[in-house]
Each structure stands twice: as C-alpha cells, then as structure tokens.
Amino acid sequence: MSVRIENKGDVVTAYLEGELDHHNAKAIREDVDAALDRHSPGLLVLDFREITFMDSSGIGLVMGRYKKLQGTGAQIHITGTSPPIYKVMQIAGLSKLANIDKGGKTLEKTAE
C-alpha cells in the first residue's frame, strides 16, 4: 500500500495504491494529513484508481478527512472508484460528504 501526493495550485491530490484496510489506513492517513497541513488546499482529490481492495477503513479515511477539513471551506473529490469500492462507499452515504465520480475524468479537469 502506498500513496503519492501531488500539490498543484489549490489542489492536493492523493493517488492511493494497493489494499485499503485497517492495517494500511494509518500510514495513508498520516501522509494525507501532512499534505493537508502543509498546503491548506481548497480541494482534496482522493484518487482510488489503483486501489485493489477496500473495506470500511476506506470510509473512515474519507470521513476523517472530511472532519479535518470541516470549517476550512475545502471540498473533497473522490475519483476512480471501481464497482466494489463504490459499493462500500454507498453503504456509508459518502456522496453526501464528497463528490464521487467513477471514471476519473473529472480529475484531470479539476487538477488543471
């Protein structure tokens, strides 16, 4: 499991990779939070394209970042979710907290 973080203008993008479970979530959270603290972005993009497995720990990751950014006016955008990952997110009603798109096309638009 790894995460590559990119900062462009007002946008922090976290490219998540591998299996997102409780065991792996902590390291990702710490990396993403460090980038949020450093850049105070207006938009956080979580890119799930390279995630091969996710359980509710992934929901915790999104909800935790939502809470962290609350009050800053920053938005969360989730992209690249495969059907199984989207299914887990739907249980949590994450679409109320973040914009979710499955294809990942909006990402390029947002990041440029």
């Binding site: 979530a25 902590k26 959270r29 359980d55 509710s56 720990s57 929901i59 915790g60 990751l61 909800m63 935790g64 299914k87 887990v88 249980i91 949590a92």
Partner: peptide
C-alpha cells in the same frame, strides 16, 4: 471515534 466509520456490521450485513 476518529478514523473508524462504525460501519463494519453494516458492510457485513449488506454484502
């Protein structure tokens, strides 16, 4: 709290 969503059983139930 914090980083756990509290959805473990909900996921098991629906899957």
């Amino acid at each position: 709290g914090g980083e756990r969503a509290g959805l473990g059983f909900a996921v098991m139930q629906s899957f």
